[in-house]
Nucleic acid binder design. Structure first.
Lengths: 202, 202
DNA sequence: CACTAATTCTATAGGGTTATAGAATTTATA
DNA sequence: TATAAATTCTATAACCCTATAGAATTAGTG
């Protein structure tokens, strides 16, 4: 394969199709449960032809995870740099997180559930992107504490991770049950994170 | 195999060992990523001999999930039927949940992450147990609302699922990072769930 | 249209997998 | 200790899987 044979429009288009097919198949069957045959069938080519677009099955998983994270981090970056009140920012962040699950973002599911099956080396690449995302979310919390909206004693790191855990949980639910209403879940998540469950005693 | 050859003490002991080995291997490599060879090696027998204890690899996964849930539901049952104030009950429930992760309860992790690879038929069996657990946790929330400790407008079902999502997230973290302190995480989870992040305005 | 480059295909090497049959061995019991 | 029952082993059938080589086809260009 010529080194720059990958610069044709068709290559880009098919490559993207391959990543989507891999995301879809990995999301449904898991990395080890899916075969390269499954991915090829899903995009209507033969098993062997897939290797024109991926150097290996593991490389396919890596690409799926990377694209998922990239889209995701970009979105978060936009939100976290906008100047708006905390609640709105948090709403935007949670909404974006959940919406991308509902938008059948299979790649995101694959990243969350399957990335551990990557070699340690490949996982390192993902970590950089992942922690950037986490940091931006954490910055929202920190800002909220400084502005006095959030509890002074809040452990922002813990809150950030908890919110991610919560969103991943409900994100999975949203992909699993199409009857769940995205905006209702989003609202409830925000209320849960901000107010907790206790009766306010004021 | 004689139908009641499974009533010897040795059979029970080895069967248990097999379930533990399967849990451990499935937890590390995932259901499809693990081979029956891996499980057999882990308990020091040959691959073929494993089939004296499991009728199939899938049956092994089912047994792992079932035992995990059974232990778990029993624990929750005890907690939810004790008469003590809400906060204590919730603390006990969260503590038990997280502690069983930290106690290297690999079976629980397998149940959460791998049960979708079971046939639908087998998953049905798990659902019954699972919803019993969820119901008991939800009862704690409902009781809290009635007694006036929790917010009157709280969606108890949503809160229950969110708590489960939160605990599963931190549970996974606890198994992944041995440096995390169980009691601190437990405390923080309770605080997060009860008070949320907002500054109280009283 | 002729020629080249890009894309896809077929075929296969070299593995690894589950599950089973029947032999060998260990354990329990009379 | 002999005998039966339970447990484990070896060997293997019958798959499925990844990755590659080289041929065939399709698309792009002068």
């Amino acid at each position: 394969m010529n080194p720059d044979s990958q610069n044709t429009p068709r290559y880009h288009q098919q490559h993207q199709k391959a990543i989507n097919a891999a995301a879809s198949v990995f999301a449904e069957k898991g990395y080890h449960g899916a075969s390269t045959q499954d991915i090829a069938s899903h995009m209507g080519i033969r098993q062997g032809s897939l290797y024109y677009y991926f150097t290996s099955k593991e490389a396919a998983l890596e690409e799926v995870c990377l694209t998922a994270l990239r889209d995701y981090v970009d979105q978060m970056e936009q939100i976290s740099t906008q100047t708006q009140p905390l609640k709105e920012k948090l709403t935007a962040a949670i909404g974006a997180h959940l919406a991308s699950y509902r938008a059948n973002n299979e790649a995101l599911k694959v990243h969350n559930e399957q990335r551990l099956y990557l070699s340690e080396e490949k996982r390192e690449k993902l970590k950089a992107l992942g922690s950037r995302y986490r940091q931006q979310l954490e910055d929202i919390f920190i800002e909220g504490v400084h502005s006095g909206v959030l509890n002074k004693t809040l452990d922002c790191h813990f809150a950030t991770l908890s919110l991610i855990g919560l969103c991943n949980y409900w994100g999975t639910m949203l992909t699993r049950d199409p009857k769940l209403a995205l905006n209702k879940i989003t609202e409830k998540c925000i209320d849960f994170v901000l107010n907790g469950c206790l009766e306010q005693t004021n």
